[in-house]
Design a protein around this nucleic acid. Structure first.
Lengths: 210, 210
DNA sequence: GCAACAAATGACACCTGGTGTCAATAGTGT
DNA sequence: ACACTATTGACACCAGGTGTCATTTGTTGC
């Protein structure tokens, strides 16, 4: 309420954010220009005019410089999923959640940084691995949500039922596949469309199975 | 034909293989005992009685000590897939291929090393990430096979069609999910069963979608 | 069996990502 | 203005890898 309170965001925090931004921007520019692996932290530190140690104070790992500021956050996805009606089929819930984050991706194709950075990720094995590792963590969170939701409806999955894990894994597989497709030069639809196509593809392909 | 020819596998190669085995065994024992990250290459080198440099001559990265000798090889999976009839639905082909590699996994639960090593992989973030990265490479190979197969049948996918990638991603997602399920203490079915359950789960979940 | 060649090894120096420590400095609340 | 605390640079250190070189040890032709 107190309007005088807003000035509490002191100089300290503001400079911190400013520096954080400057580092990511400088780093991303270098990554795009010379590649991730051939850009050292020293290069970045020098380019931004600070010590190596200080760069590590803002970003605890080199990967964070890339993966820390992705278009959508994991928390967001989990929360959106939790807000879905409990009686909605899981596959549809996931589709809707992915659709909600899609605009964040679509709105960055004009951005000269984010799309190229995605390319950097997918073309750098160690980064791709780290990215997939993150996804796996998210998947796990979603799996737990799927379990919770079923339990809340009074029909919990047995501990040894692979259903929640498998569905989450397949859906996130679609997400990544859609992302890669969307990045191809030939593809000129929206990211949301790519997700739909990917998830429909899986439905169609697995459909004949009993 | 010439029986005298077999001795061509000289001492050199034999010792090389012997040393390779000894290193992996020693390393894996240490990984299982003290964890992957808290075991250094120096520890391994010392335990096996050689220099750090020489360990790196047998395994170019620490990860290779774990991921180099997985139960099934990528090549194998791709070839098995290629041998499937071209008119078989892709999802079924993948299921069959996975079933073929399943026994290799099932036969190792008696092995005191391989199953614990899988646990090490799934509980060490950096290793899991590397593993997923490998999977992604395999997925890409399979995607190409899917494309080839369709092209051979005279109905190639457009370059921008996410179908092959999405289906491959979902199937491998099931594979990993099955693997994780199979590793749980509560699960006491075969790995093949876990794969079936996972793939059926996805079919069921995505079924309602248009 | 011996000389000539190639592979394997250890020792050493070096690069890169990442962490702990410490003294100096600069922002903050009173 | 003053005590308090966060931020910084400098430095030392660890672990994963790589390049190099001299030495040893299998291999091969004679």
């Amino acid at each position: 309420m107190m309007t005088g309170n807003e000035r509490k965001v002191g100089l300290r925090e503001r400079t911190r954010q400013a520096v954080t931004r400057e580092i990511t921007e400088t780093a991303n520019a270098l990554f795009i220009e010379r590649g991730y692996e051939s850009t050292t932290i020293d290069d970045i530190a020098e380019a931004v005019g600070m010590s190596r140690r200080s760069v590590f104070r803002y970003f605890s790992t080199k990967e964070d410089l890339v993966l820390g500021k992705l278009a959508f956050s994991g928390q967001e996805v989990v929360e959106q999923f939790r807000n879905r009606p409990a009686d909605e089929p899981v596959w549809e819930s996931l589709r809707e959640v992915f659709r909600l984050i899609a605009p964040a991706v679509d709105n960055l194709d004009k951005d000269a940084v984010a799309a190229p950075m995605q390319r950097v990720i997918f073309s750098t094995p160690s980064l791709l691995a780290a990215y997939l590792g993150m996804q796996q963590g998210l998947q796990d969170a979603i799996m737990n949500e799927i379990r919770d939701r079923a339990a809340r409806r009074g029909a919990p999955y047995p501990k040894s039922d692979p259903f929640p894990r498998a569905v989450a894994a397949a859906a996130f597989g679609c997400l990544v596949a859609a992302q890669q497709t969307w990045l191809e030069d030939e593809y000129d639809e929206t990211f949301a469309k790519a997700i739909d196509e990917a998830m429909d593809a899986v439905a169609a392909a697995s459909g004949r199975a009993g």
